[in-house]
Write a protein that binds this DNA or RNA. Sequence first.
DNA 1: AAAACATTCAATAAAATTATTGAATGTTGT
DNA 2: ACAACATTCAATAATTTTATTGAATGTTTT
Lengths: 221, 221
Amino acid sequence: MKAREFKKKIYNELAVTTKAIANPNRLRIIELLAQGASTVEYIAEQTGLSVANASQHLQTLKNARLVSSEKEGKYSIYRLAGPRVFEAWSALRELGLSQNAEISRLMDDYRNEHETLEMVSVEELVKRVDKDEVFLVDVRPRHEYEAGHILSATSFPRDEIRQHIKNLPKNKDIIAYCRGPLCAMADDVVSLLRRQGFNAKRLELGYPEWKANGLPVEESA
Amino acid sequence: MKAREFKKKIYNELAVTTKAIANPNRLRIIELLAQGASTVEYIAEQTGLSVANASQHLQTLKNARLVSSEKEGKYSIYRLAGPRVFEAWSALRELGLSQNAEISRLMDDYRNEHETLEMVSVEELVKRVDKDEVFLVDVRPRHEYEAGHILSATSFPRDEIRQHIKNLPKNKDIIAYCRGPLCAMADDVVSLLRRQGFNAKRLELGYPEWKANGLPVEESA
DNA sequence: AAAACATTCAATAAAATTATTGAATGTTGT
DNA sequence: ACAACATTCAATAATTTTATTGAATGTTTT
């Protein structure tokens, strides 16, 4: 094959893969699937897409081999097709955070409103969890917690916060985490808990980053 | 701001940034700019695009803050807007190589045709360059070599190969590198040199990866 | 001042991406 | 067998993306 033809085909194919990611809904779907395998219905519910539309986006990702699916009875279970998918997603997230001023602005505004004054780094959490100094809460929907969570975290879904608030210790720092740096659930919870007098902070990253780092998790069979 | 609205805006913006990359010509342009700053004309010449079209793609990248430009006389000099751009590009390249079977197939085919039997890792090159065991050649266009190259490399542009072949040592391994893992120029040179009886191999990565790793380079002022 | 040059702009047509809708497929539970 | 259910398919219209063309802008050289 001629060099020119080769070059053209290579970059066309690379663009095929890249275009499969380059859509707001599919970026959300990849973040969701980074939490664990999921049905079409769950994706639709969490993103607010119609089931048909969610299915169509999942097909697009599947054609690009970024996700795989298997049939289980009447359900289709989708999952990320390999570690590179989340790695590329993370690189794009970092690119967005560093180059797109509108993203940083939106994040800063949201966090100011929610008084997310302090963030805890992964290293700090590792240390303080070992010393049993903190109470770690997973504020994602229970379903995602059950698919996999940080070892020693307690499920404390944002949407059920009022039922569970009485079980929280007043004497420990409470650290909340969710789906990752772009996820607002932990901020919402920190905001509410601080107004109730708890000493709450958010983890800077989320479950998928923790897991990708090889840190201890508990996963469902 | 409401959580739902925030989420929507964040992912729309992230898609804006991602879409700016998601085009075959712009992927090539980013790879070119990773070699060093460049004029519109050079980009157009290297990609085969018309100048107007190259300019338009550069505008798209500039609007997304992925490249910056400055005027120097009648020339516009474009460069990557920060290290994250090449990092994300690299992550997408790795994603393509791992998930898109057509890319691996194209690469394998091209390399079989060109007998790129052995590749040299960066670690191996570092060791052997120190011991002066190898002759390192930069096969990119001279212009890119002059903008920046691996320390101790000799310029040996693929397109001028026949004029320079007599200056090569027969007794050393010759290692050729170019723009990166997707670049075919090093393969073309290795192929030709091997047919001439030289012991030639290609570096698995390219100049931008070497530089991003903090390894020693020589850059123009 | 005029010519040469590098780049950008503006308009357009062709191609692609996207969300919506309703029907079709295939599985499970009654 | 039938109803309920999860998902996929197919068709469509609206929107976005893209390459092409030729003119416009602004700089350097003659």
